[in-house]
Write a protein that binds this DNA or RNA. Structure first.
Lengths: 258, 258
DNA sequence: CCCTTCTATGAATCGTGCT
DNA sequence: CAGCACGATTCATAGAAGG
Protein backbone atom coordinates (compact mmCIF):
# COMPACT_ATOMS: atom_id res chain seq x y z
CA UNK A 1 0.00 0.00 0.00
CA UNK A 2 1.42 3.37 -0.96
CA UNK A 3 1.65 6.24 1.51
CA UNK A 4 -0.85 9.02 0.82
CA UNK A 5 0.56 12.48 0.31
CA UNK A 6 0.41 14.58 3.46
CA UNK A 7 -1.88 17.56 3.92
CA UNK A 8 1.12 19.32 5.41
CA UNK A 9 4.54 18.36 6.75
CA UNK A 10 7.89 19.65 7.87
CA UNK A 11 10.97 17.90 9.26
CA UNK A 12 9.28 17.11 12.61
CA UNK A 13 5.60 16.76 11.81
CA UNK A 14 3.41 15.06 9.21
CA UNK A 15 -0.32 15.71 8.96
CA UNK A 16 -2.60 13.55 6.80
CA UNK A 17 -6.16 14.44 5.92
CA UNK A 18 -8.59 11.52 5.70
CA UNK A 19 -10.27 8.64 7.48
CA UNK A 20 -8.07 7.37 10.32
CA UNK A 21 -8.51 3.68 9.61
CA UNK A 22 -7.56 4.07 5.94
CA UNK A 23 -4.53 6.25 6.58
CA UNK A 24 -3.33 4.01 9.43
CA UNK A 25 -3.36 1.03 7.06
CA UNK A 26 -0.77 2.77 4.90
CA UNK A 27 1.67 3.42 7.76
CA UNK A 28 4.57 0.96 8.23
CA UNK A 29 4.55 -1.62 11.05
CA UNK A 30 6.36 -0.73 14.29
CA UNK A 31 7.16 2.76 13.07
CA UNK A 32 6.00 4.84 16.06
CA UNK A 33 6.85 4.87 19.78
CA UNK A 34 3.50 6.00 21.09
CA UNK A 35 -0.13 6.66 20.18
CA UNK A 36 -1.53 9.70 21.99
CA UNK A 37 -5.05 10.66 21.03
CA UNK A 38 -8.46 12.01 21.88
CA UNK A 39 -11.06 10.16 19.78
CA UNK A 40 -14.69 11.31 19.31
CA UNK A 41 -16.54 10.09 22.43
CA UNK A 42 -20.07 9.82 21.02
CA UNK A 43 -21.12 10.91 24.47
CA UNK A 44 -24.33 12.69 23.61
CA UNK A 45 -25.87 9.45 22.47
CA UNK A 46 -28.79 8.66 24.76
CA UNK A 47 -31.18 9.01 21.81
CA UNK A 48 -30.65 8.88 18.06
CA UNK A 49 -31.77 12.48 17.87
CA UNK A 50 -29.16 13.62 20.34
CA UNK A 51 -26.48 11.67 18.49
CA UNK A 52 -27.44 13.13 15.13
CA UNK A 53 -27.32 16.68 16.43
CA UNK A 54 -24.57 18.90 15.10
CA UNK A 55 -21.48 18.80 17.27
CA UNK A 56 -21.19 22.56 17.07
CA UNK A 57 -24.49 22.88 18.96
CA UNK A 58 -24.52 19.52 20.77
CA UNK A 59 -21.93 20.37 23.38
CA UNK A 60 -22.81 24.01 23.65
CA UNK A 61 -25.07 25.39 26.37
CA UNK A 62 -28.04 27.59 25.49
CA UNK A 63 -26.88 31.18 25.28
CA UNK A 64 -23.24 30.45 24.48
CA UNK A 65 -21.77 32.85 21.94
CA UNK A 66 -18.66 31.09 20.55
CA UNK A 67 -18.86 29.18 17.29
CA UNK A 68 -16.47 26.40 16.32
CA UNK A 69 -16.31 24.11 13.24
CA UNK A 70 -18.19 20.79 13.15
CA UNK A 71 -16.39 17.56 13.83
CA UNK A 72 -17.31 14.11 12.53
CA UNK A 73 -17.48 10.62 13.97
CA UNK A 74 -19.37 11.55 17.12
CA UNK A 75 -22.64 9.79 16.35
CA UNK A 76 -22.18 6.13 17.29
CA UNK A 77 -24.17 4.15 19.80
CA UNK A 78 -22.41 2.23 22.55
CA UNK A 79 -21.88 -1.05 20.67
CA UNK A 80 -20.75 0.59 17.46
CA UNK A 81 -18.40 2.82 19.40
CA UNK A 82 -16.71 -0.19 20.98
CA UNK A 83 -16.38 -2.04 17.68
CA UNK A 84 -15.13 1.02 15.81
CA UNK A 85 -12.61 1.82 18.56
CA UNK A 86 -11.29 -1.74 18.58
CA UNK A 87 -10.64 -1.49 14.83
CA UNK A 88 -8.52 1.65 14.90
CA UNK A 89 -6.83 0.53 18.11
CA UNK A 90 -5.79 -2.77 16.48
CA UNK A 91 -4.34 -0.87 13.54
CA UNK A 92 -2.53 1.51 15.90
CA UNK A 93 -1.05 -1.51 17.68
CA UNK A 94 0.50 -2.72 14.44
CA UNK A 95 1.98 0.70 13.72
CA UNK A 96 3.45 0.94 17.23
CA UNK A 97 6.74 -0.76 18.10
CA UNK A 98 6.64 -3.52 20.76
CA UNK A 99 6.98 -1.88 24.16
CA UNK A 100 5.31 1.26 22.85
CA UNK A 101 2.61 3.16 24.71
CA UNK A 102 -1.03 4.13 24.15
CA UNK A 103 -2.58 7.15 25.86
CA UNK A 104 -6.22 7.74 24.94
CA UNK A 105 -8.61 10.29 26.40
CA UNK A 106 -12.17 9.32 27.26
CA UNK A 107 -15.14 10.61 29.29
CA UNK A 108 -16.61 8.67 32.21
CA UNK A 109 -19.59 7.27 30.35
CA UNK A 110 -17.52 5.56 27.65
CA UNK A 111 -14.70 4.47 29.97
CA UNK A 112 -15.79 0.81 30.30
CA UNK A 113 -16.44 0.50 26.53
CA UNK A 114 -13.04 1.99 25.84
CA UNK A 115 -11.10 -0.33 28.16
CA UNK A 116 -12.87 -3.23 26.41
CA UNK A 117 -11.94 -1.88 22.99
CA UNK A 118 -8.31 -1.33 24.00
CA UNK A 119 -8.00 -4.94 25.07
CA UNK A 120 -9.92 -6.31 22.07
CA UNK A 121 -7.49 -4.32 19.93
CA UNK A 122 -4.61 -6.32 21.43
CA UNK A 123 -3.14 -3.76 23.82
CA UNK A 124 -2.28 -4.57 27.44
CA UNK A 125 -4.36 -2.25 29.59
CA UNK A 126 -2.14 -0.71 32.29
CA UNK A 127 -4.45 1.68 34.09
CA UNK A 128 -6.36 4.95 34.15
CA UNK A 129 -5.05 8.44 34.76
CA UNK A 130 -7.64 11.06 35.70
CA UNK A 131 -7.44 14.54 34.24
CA UNK A 132 -8.98 16.85 36.84
CA UNK A 133 -10.38 19.88 35.01
CA UNK A 134 -10.75 21.65 38.36
CA UNK A 135 -13.76 23.41 39.78
CA UNK A 136 -14.29 25.54 36.70
CA UNK A 137 -16.57 22.97 35.05
CA UNK A 138 -20.33 23.28 35.26
CA UNK A 139 -21.61 22.21 38.68
CA UNK A 140 -24.37 19.68 39.15
CA UNK A 141 -26.78 20.71 41.87
CA UNK A 142 -27.05 18.18 44.65
CA UNK A 143 -24.54 15.78 43.19
CA UNK A 144 -20.89 15.30 42.28
CA UNK A 145 -19.49 17.56 39.60
CA UNK A 146 -18.49 15.76 36.35
CA UNK A 147 -15.08 17.29 36.70
CA UNK A 148 -12.70 14.68 35.28
CA UNK A 149 -11.87 13.07 32.00
CA UNK A 150 -9.71 9.98 31.89
CA UNK A 151 -6.60 8.85 30.04
CA UNK A 152 -6.49 5.12 29.39
CA UNK A 153 -2.93 3.80 29.44
CA UNK A 154 -1.80 0.64 27.67
CA UNK A 155 1.31 -0.92 26.16
CA UNK A 156 2.15 -3.01 23.13
CA UNK A 157 3.20 -6.19 24.93
CA UNK A 158 5.55 -6.01 27.91
CA UNK A 159 6.55 -2.53 29.01
CA UNK A 160 9.41 -1.08 27.03
CA UNK A 161 12.17 0.86 28.67
CA UNK A 162 10.97 4.26 27.46
CA UNK A 163 11.17 5.60 30.98
CA UNK A 164 12.67 2.78 33.02
CA UNK A 165 16.19 3.65 31.95
CA UNK A 166 15.52 7.36 32.44
CA UNK A 167 14.22 6.61 35.95
CA UNK A 168 11.30 8.92 35.43
CA UNK A 169 8.19 8.65 37.56
CA UNK A 170 5.00 10.01 36.06
CA UNK A 171 2.12 11.40 38.16
CA UNK A 172 -1.06 9.31 38.38
CA UNK A 173 -3.39 12.31 38.34
CA UNK A 174 -3.21 15.55 36.36
CA UNK A 175 -4.85 18.73 37.58
CA UNK A 176 -5.11 21.29 34.80
CA UNK A 177 -7.92 23.71 34.08
CA UNK A 178 -9.32 24.42 30.63
CA UNK A 179 -8.82 27.84 29.12
CA UNK A 180 -11.56 28.40 26.61
CA UNK A 181 -9.50 30.99 24.75
CA UNK A 182 -6.98 28.26 24.00
CA UNK A 183 -9.62 25.88 22.67
CA UNK A 184 -9.67 25.85 18.89
CA UNK A 185 -11.69 22.61 18.86
CA UNK A 186 -14.86 22.05 20.90
CA UNK A 187 -13.09 19.28 22.76
CA UNK A 188 -9.60 20.78 22.69
CA UNK A 189 -7.12 19.87 25.41
CA UNK A 190 -4.62 22.24 27.07
CA UNK A 191 -1.19 22.13 25.39
CA UNK A 192 0.44 22.16 28.83
CA UNK A 193 -1.42 18.98 29.82
CA UNK A 194 -0.32 17.25 26.61
CA UNK A 195 3.28 18.29 27.17
CA UNK A 196 3.21 16.88 30.69
CA UNK A 197 1.78 13.58 29.42
CA UNK A 198 4.39 13.33 26.67
CA UNK A 199 7.12 13.56 29.31
CA UNK A 200 6.79 9.78 29.51
CA UNK A 201 8.74 9.64 26.22
CA UNK A 202 12.30 10.78 25.58
CA UNK A 203 12.99 13.57 23.09
CA UNK A 204 13.27 12.23 19.56
CA UNK A 205 10.39 9.78 19.97
CA UNK A 206 7.75 9.42 17.26
CA UNK A 207 4.16 10.08 18.36
CA UNK A 208 1.02 9.21 16.39
CA UNK A 209 -2.36 10.93 16.84
CA UNK A 210 -5.05 9.36 14.64
CA UNK A 211 -7.62 12.01 15.68
CA UNK A 212 -5.51 15.14 15.54
CA UNK A 213 -8.32 17.71 15.64
CA UNK A 214 -6.83 21.16 16.05
CA UNK A 215 -3.39 19.57 16.48
CA UNK A 216 -2.73 19.94 20.22
CA UNK A 217 -0.85 16.62 20.43
CA UNK A 218 1.35 17.57 17.49
CA UNK A 219 2.08 21.02 18.91
CA UNK A 220 2.99 19.52 22.30
CA UNK A 221 5.19 16.84 20.68
CA UNK A 222 7.06 19.49 18.74
CA UNK A 223 7.56 21.58 21.87
CA UNK A 224 8.99 18.49 23.61
CA UNK A 225 11.45 17.80 20.77
CA UNK A 226 9.57 14.84 19.30
CA UNK A 227 8.45 13.79 15.85
CA UNK A 228 4.76 13.37 15.25
CA UNK A 229 2.27 12.01 12.74
CA UNK A 230 -1.32 13.25 12.78
CA UNK A 231 -4.48 12.19 10.97
CA UNK A 232 -7.56 14.38 10.79
CA UNK A 233 -10.65 13.97 8.68
CA UNK A 234 -11.99 17.54 8.55
CA UNK A 235 -10.26 19.95 6.20
CA UNK A 236 -11.22 22.86 8.41
CA UNK A 237 -9.41 21.35 11.39
CA UNK A 238 -6.49 20.29 9.19
CA UNK A 239 -6.06 23.92 8.22
CA UNK A 240 -6.29 25.06 11.83
CA UNK A 241 -3.69 22.46 12.89
CA UNK A 242 -1.34 23.44 10.02
CA UNK A 243 -1.54 27.10 10.97
CA UNK A 244 -0.82 26.33 14.63
CA UNK A 245 2.13 24.09 13.74
CA UNK A 246 3.57 26.55 11.25
CA UNK A 247 3.44 29.26 13.88
CA UNK A 248 4.49 27.34 16.98
CA UNK A 249 8.08 27.34 18.20
CA UNK A 250 10.15 24.20 17.90
CA UNK A 251 11.97 22.68 20.86
CA UNK A 252 15.53 24.01 21.15
CA UNK A 253 17.18 20.62 21.66
CA UNK A 254 15.00 18.95 19.05
CA UNK A 255 16.92 16.65 16.70
CA UNK A 256 14.60 17.97 14.01
CA UNK A 257 15.91 21.49 14.43
CA UNK A 258 19.55 20.42 14.40
CA UNK B 1 -37.74 -12.74 57.64
CA UNK B 2 -36.72 -11.77 61.16
CA UNK B 3 -33.97 -9.29 61.83
CA UNK B 4 -30.81 -10.89 63.19
CA UNK B 5 -29.54 -9.58 66.52
CA UNK B 6 -26.79 -7.01 66.08
CA UNK B 7 -23.17 -7.61 66.97
CA UNK B 8 -23.26 -4.17 68.55
CA UNK B 9 -25.51 -1.12 68.48
CA UNK B 10 -26.31 2.19 70.07
CA UNK B 11 -28.87 4.88 69.24
CA UNK B 12 -27.05 5.97 66.06
CA UNK B 13 -25.29 2.84 64.80
CA UNK B 14 -26.10 -0.82 64.25
CA UNK B 15 -23.42 -3.36 63.36
CA UNK B 16 -24.32 -6.86 62.17
CA UNK B 17 -21.87 -9.72 61.90
CA UNK B 18 -22.43 -12.11 59.01
CA UNK B 19 -22.63 -12.57 55.26
CA UNK B 20 -23.74 -9.33 53.58
CA UNK B 21 -26.25 -10.88 51.22
CA UNK B 22 -28.02 -12.78 54.01
CA UNK B 23 -28.14 -9.83 56.39
CA UNK B 24 -29.29 -7.46 53.62
CA UNK B 25 -32.22 -9.77 52.89
CA UNK B 26 -33.51 -9.21 56.42
CA UNK B 27 -33.46 -5.40 56.18
CA UNK B 28 -36.73 -3.62 55.32
CA UNK B 29 -37.36 -2.17 51.83
CA UNK B 30 -36.62 1.54 51.31
CA UNK B 31 -35.22 1.91 54.81
CA UNK B 32 -31.93 3.69 54.07
CA UNK B 33 -30.98 6.92 52.27
CA UNK B 34 -27.60 5.83 50.94
CA UNK B 35 -25.27 2.88 50.51
CA UNK B 36 -21.63 3.84 51.03
CA UNK B 37 -19.15 1.01 50.86
CA UNK B 38 -15.79 -0.40 49.92
CA UNK B 39 -16.30 -4.00 48.80
CA UNK B 40 -13.50 -6.56 48.45
CA UNK B 41 -11.94 -5.81 45.04
CA UNK B 42 -10.52 -9.22 44.07
CA UNK B 43 -7.86 -7.05 42.49
CA UNK B 44 -5.01 -9.52 42.48
CA UNK B 45 -6.88 -11.88 40.22
CA UNK B 46 -4.63 -12.23 37.17
CA UNK B 47 -3.87 -15.87 38.11
CA UNK B 48 -5.57 -18.37 40.38
CA UNK B 49 -2.36 -18.63 42.40
CA UNK B 50 -2.36 -14.91 43.10
CA UNK B 51 -6.02 -15.08 44.12
CA UNK B 52 -5.47 -17.95 46.53
CA UNK B 53 -2.73 -16.08 48.40
CA UNK B 54 -3.56 -14.93 51.90
CA UNK B 55 -5.02 -11.44 51.92
CA UNK B 56 -2.97 -10.16 54.83
CA UNK B 57 0.28 -10.63 52.94
CA UNK B 58 -1.09 -9.85 49.46
CA UNK B 59 -1.29 -6.10 49.98
CA UNK B 60 1.91 -5.78 51.97
CA UNK B 61 5.26 -4.98 50.39
CA UNK B 62 8.01 -7.54 50.87
CA UNK B 63 9.77 -6.87 54.14
CA UNK B 64 6.91 -4.87 55.62
CA UNK B 65 6.22 -5.81 59.21
CA UNK B 66 2.64 -4.68 59.76
CA UNK B 67 0.23 -7.55 60.23
CA UNK B 68 -3.52 -7.15 59.95
CA UNK B 69 -6.37 -9.66 60.22
CA UNK B 70 -7.41 -11.72 57.19
CA UNK B 71 -10.38 -10.58 55.22
CA UNK B 72 -12.59 -12.81 53.14
CA UNK B 73 -14.28 -12.46 49.78
CA UNK B 74 -11.23 -11.21 47.93
CA UNK B 75 -10.53 -14.26 45.78
CA UNK B 76 -13.05 -14.17 42.95
CA UNK B 77 -12.27 -14.13 39.25
CA UNK B 78 -13.56 -11.32 37.04
CA UNK B 79 -16.87 -12.92 35.99
CA UNK B 80 -17.72 -14.17 39.47
CA UNK B 81 -16.88 -10.77 40.88
CA UNK B 82 -19.34 -9.08 38.52
CA UNK B 83 -22.10 -11.56 39.27
CA UNK B 84 -21.54 -11.48 43.02
CA UNK B 85 -21.43 -7.67 43.03
CA UNK B 86 -24.68 -7.46 41.03
CA UNK B 87 -26.38 -9.64 43.65
CA UNK B 88 -25.54 -7.55 46.69
CA UNK B 89 -26.07 -4.34 44.69
CA UNK B 90 -29.59 -5.47 43.73
CA UNK B 91 -30.36 -6.21 47.37
CA UNK B 92 -28.95 -2.83 48.40
CA UNK B 93 -31.21 -1.19 45.80
CA UNK B 94 -34.25 -2.71 47.46
CA UNK B 95 -33.14 -1.53 50.89
CA UNK B 96 -32.52 2.01 49.59
CA UNK B 97 -35.37 4.49 49.20
CA UNK B 98 -36.14 5.76 45.66
CA UNK B 99 -33.90 8.74 44.96
CA UNK B 100 -31.25 7.33 47.30
CA UNK B 101 -27.56 7.23 46.48
CA UNK B 102 -24.87 4.57 46.03
CA UNK B 103 -21.18 5.38 46.55
CA UNK B 104 -18.90 2.40 46.05
CA UNK B 105 -15.10 2.39 46.07
CA UNK B 106 -13.21 0.39 43.46
CA UNK B 107 -9.69 0.07 42.02
CA UNK B 108 -8.96 0.77 38.35
CA UNK B 109 -8.80 -2.84 37.20
CA UNK B 110 -12.30 -3.71 38.44
CA UNK B 111 -13.86 -0.40 37.43
CA UNK B 112 -15.51 -1.66 34.20
CA UNK B 113 -16.81 -4.82 35.92
CA UNK B 114 -18.17 -2.74 38.75
CA UNK B 115 -20.03 -0.25 36.52
CA UNK B 116 -21.57 -3.26 34.77
CA UNK B 117 -22.59 -4.80 38.09
CA UNK B 118 -24.07 -1.53 39.34
CA UNK B 119 -26.30 -1.31 36.27
CA UNK B 120 -27.18 -5.02 36.29
CA UNK B 121 -28.20 -4.49 39.91
CA UNK B 122 -30.74 -1.90 38.76
CA UNK B 123 -28.99 1.32 39.81
CA UNK B 124 -28.65 4.30 37.46
CA UNK B 125 -24.95 4.89 37.01
CA UNK B 126 -24.23 8.61 37.42
CA UNK B 127 -20.48 8.84 37.13
CA UNK B 128 -17.06 8.27 38.64
CA UNK B 129 -15.31 10.33 41.29
CA UNK B 130 -11.55 9.80 41.57
CA UNK B 131 -9.91 9.64 44.97
CA UNK B 132 -6.39 10.94 44.47
CA UNK B 133 -4.20 9.36 47.15
CA UNK B 134 -1.49 11.91 46.27
CA UNK B 135 2.17 11.27 45.59
CA UNK B 136 2.59 9.24 48.76
CA UNK B 137 1.76 5.97 47.00
CA UNK B 138 4.49 3.72 45.65
CA UNK B 139 5.93 5.11 42.42
CA UNK B 140 6.08 3.00 39.27
CA UNK B 141 9.38 3.44 37.43
CA UNK B 142 8.93 4.55 33.85
CA UNK B 143 5.16 4.70 33.97
CA UNK B 144 2.18 6.44 35.54
CA UNK B 145 1.75 5.99 39.29
CA UNK B 146 -1.35 3.98 40.30
CA UNK B 147 -2.32 6.84 42.52
CA UNK B 148 -6.12 6.87 42.40
CA UNK B 149 -9.00 4.77 43.49
CA UNK B 150 -12.48 5.48 42.20
CA UNK B 151 -15.90 6.00 43.71
CA UNK B 152 -18.73 4.82 41.49
CA UNK B 153 -21.81 6.99 41.96
CA UNK B 154 -25.35 5.84 41.21
CA UNK B 155 -28.93 6.53 42.23
CA UNK B 156 -32.07 4.51 42.86
CA UNK B 157 -34.16 5.86 39.96
CA UNK B 158 -34.34 9.61 39.29
CA UNK B 159 -32.21 11.78 41.52
CA UNK B 160 -33.76 12.55 44.85
CA UNK B 161 -33.56 15.98 46.36
CA UNK B 162 -30.94 15.07 48.97
CA UNK B 163 -28.88 18.02 47.90
CA UNK B 164 -31.02 19.91 45.42
CA UNK B 165 -32.96 21.59 48.16
CA UNK B 166 -29.82 22.22 50.19
CA UNK B 167 -28.15 23.80 47.13
CA UNK B 168 -24.95 21.90 47.76
CA UNK B 169 -22.38 21.33 45.05
CA UNK B 170 -20.05 18.38 45.61
CA UNK B 171 -16.51 18.22 44.23
CA UNK B 172 -15.83 15.79 41.38
CA UNK B 173 -12.36 14.81 42.59
CA UNK B 174 -11.07 14.20 46.11
CA UNK B 175 -7.44 14.67 46.99
CA UNK B 176 -6.64 13.05 50.32
CA UNK B 177 -3.51 11.16 51.33
CA UNK B 178 -3.52 7.89 53.25
CA UNK B 179 -2.09 7.85 56.74
CA UNK B 180 -1.01 4.29 57.43
CA UNK B 181 -1.20 4.91 61.20
CA UNK B 182 -4.91 5.54 60.75
CA UNK B 183 -5.46 2.36 58.75
CA UNK B 184 -6.97 -0.33 60.95
CA UNK B 185 -8.02 -2.36 57.91
CA UNK B 186 -5.68 -3.27 55.05
CA UNK B 187 -7.80 -1.27 52.64
CA UNK B 188 -8.99 1.29 55.19
CA UNK B 189 -10.02 4.74 53.95
CA UNK B 190 -9.30 8.03 55.71
CA UNK B 191 -12.16 9.11 58.00
CA UNK B 192 -11.81 12.66 56.67
CA UNK B 193 -12.41 11.45 53.09
CA UNK B 194 -15.51 9.54 54.18
CA UNK B 195 -16.83 12.57 56.03
CA UNK B 196 -16.37 14.76 52.94
CA UNK B 197 -18.19 12.20 50.78
CA UNK B 198 -21.06 11.94 53.24
CA UNK B 199 -21.59 15.69 52.96
CA UNK B 200 -23.86 14.81 50.03
CA UNK B 201 -26.44 13.74 52.64
CA UNK B 202 -28.16 15.92 55.25
CA UNK B 203 -27.67 15.18 58.95
CA UNK B 204 -30.12 12.58 60.17
CA UNK B 205 -29.80 10.42 57.02
CA UNK B 206 -29.46 6.66 57.30
CA UNK B 207 -26.34 5.17 55.69
CA UNK B 208 -25.75 1.47 54.98
CA UNK B 209 -22.30 -0.11 54.59
CA UNK B 210 -22.58 -3.81 53.67
CA UNK B 211 -18.78 -4.27 53.91
CA UNK B 212 -18.04 -2.28 57.03
CA UNK B 213 -14.49 -3.56 57.68
CA UNK B 214 -12.95 -1.55 60.48
CA UNK B 215 -16.00 0.73 60.47
CA UNK B 216 -14.69 3.90 58.84
CA UNK B 217 -18.01 4.64 57.10
CA UNK B 218 -19.90 4.22 60.38
CA UNK B 219 -17.46 6.43 62.29
CA UNK B 220 -17.72 9.15 59.61
CA UNK B 221 -21.53 8.92 59.53
CA UNK B 222 -21.65 9.33 63.31
CA UNK B 223 -19.33 12.33 63.13
CA UNK B 224 -21.65 13.88 60.51
CA UNK B 225 -24.76 13.38 62.65
CA UNK B 226 -26.16 10.46 60.67
CA UNK B 227 -27.51 7.03 61.48
CA UNK B 228 -25.71 4.02 60.07
CA UNK B 229 -26.05 0.29 59.57
CA UNK B 230 -22.96 -1.83 59.00
CA UNK B 231 -22.45 -5.45 58.03
CA UNK B 232 -19.12 -7.21 58.46
CA UNK B 233 -18.32 -10.89 58.14
CA UNK B 234 -15.12 -11.13 60.19
CA UNK B 235 -15.50 -11.15 63.98
CA UNK B 236 -12.05 -9.62 64.34
CA UNK B 237 -13.04 -6.57 62.27
CA UNK B 238 -16.43 -6.40 64.00
CA UNK B 239 -14.59 -6.07 67.30
CA UNK B 240 -12.27 -3.41 65.89
CA UNK B 241 -15.23 -1.44 64.50
CA UNK B 242 -17.14 -1.72 67.80
CA UNK B 243 -14.16 -0.43 69.75
CA UNK B 244 -13.71 2.51 67.37
CA UNK B 245 -17.41 3.40 67.49
CA UNK B 246 -17.62 3.11 71.26
CA UNK B 247 -14.65 5.45 71.60
CA UNK B 248 -15.45 7.99 68.88
CA UNK B 249 -17.24 11.25 69.66
CA UNK B 250 -20.75 11.80 68.39
CA UNK B 251 -21.74 14.81 66.31
CA UNK B 252 -23.00 17.66 68.50
CA UNK B 253 -26.09 18.46 66.46
CA UNK B 254 -26.91 14.82 65.85
CA UNK B 255 -30.59 13.99 66.29
CA UNK B 256 -29.34 10.78 67.90
CA UNK B 257 -27.62 12.69 70.68
CA UNK B 258 -30.63 14.90 71.37
C1' DC C 1 -58.89 5.93 23.95
C1' DC C 2 -55.61 5.44 27.59
C1' DC C 3 -51.40 4.04 28.87
C1' DT C 4 -46.60 3.54 28.01
C1' DT C 5 -42.43 4.68 25.69
C1' DC C 6 -39.70 7.46 22.96
C1' DT C 7 -38.11 12.12 21.22
C1' DA C 8 -37.35 16.85 20.98
C1' DT C 9 -36.69 21.20 23.27
C1' DG C 10 -35.18 24.53 26.45
C1' DA C 11 -33.77 25.94 31.16
C1' DA C 12 -30.53 25.69 34.45
C1' DT C 13 -26.15 25.97 37.44
C1' DC C 14 -21.92 28.39 40.01
C1' DG C 15 -16.91 28.65 40.31
C1' DT C 16 -13.48 30.37 37.54
C1' DG C 17 -11.03 33.32 34.52
C1' DC C 18 -11.01 37.01 31.47
C1' DT C 19 -12.46 41.92 30.43
C1' DC D 1 -13.29 44.80 41.54
C1' DA D 2 -17.60 44.10 39.51
C1' DG D 3 -19.50 41.93 35.61
C1' DC D 4 -19.93 38.64 32.12
C1' DA D 5 -19.12 34.52 29.42
C1' DC D 6 -18.33 29.65 29.72
C1' DG D 7 -18.95 24.56 30.35
C1' DA D 8 -17.10 16.51 25.69
C1' DT D 9 -24.84 17.91 30.30
C1' DT D 10 -28.58 16.75 32.91
C1' DC D 11 -33.37 17.33 34.05
C1' DA D 12 -38.18 18.12 33.38
C1' DT D 13 -41.81 18.63 30.47
C1' DA D 14 -44.60 18.64 26.54
C1' DG D 15 -45.67 16.43 22.33
C1' DA D 16 -45.55 12.33 19.11
C1' DA D 17 -45.75 7.56 18.31
C1' DG D 18 -47.10 2.98 19.26
C1' DG D 19 -50.08 -0.90 21.04
Amino acid sequence: MTLPSPFWSDDATTLYQGDSLRILQTLPTASVDAVVTDPPYSSGGMTTGARQAQTSTKYVLTGTKVQRPEFCGDNRDQRSFTLWASLWLAECLRVTRPGGVLLSFIAWRQLPSMTDAVQVGGWIWRGIVPWDKTEGVRPQMGFFRAQCEYIITATHGPMGNQGRTRRICMPGCFRESVHSREKLHITGKPVELMKRLLDILPAGSVVLDPFAGSGTTLVAARANGMHSIGVEMSDEYCAIARDRLAGSPRHVDSPASA
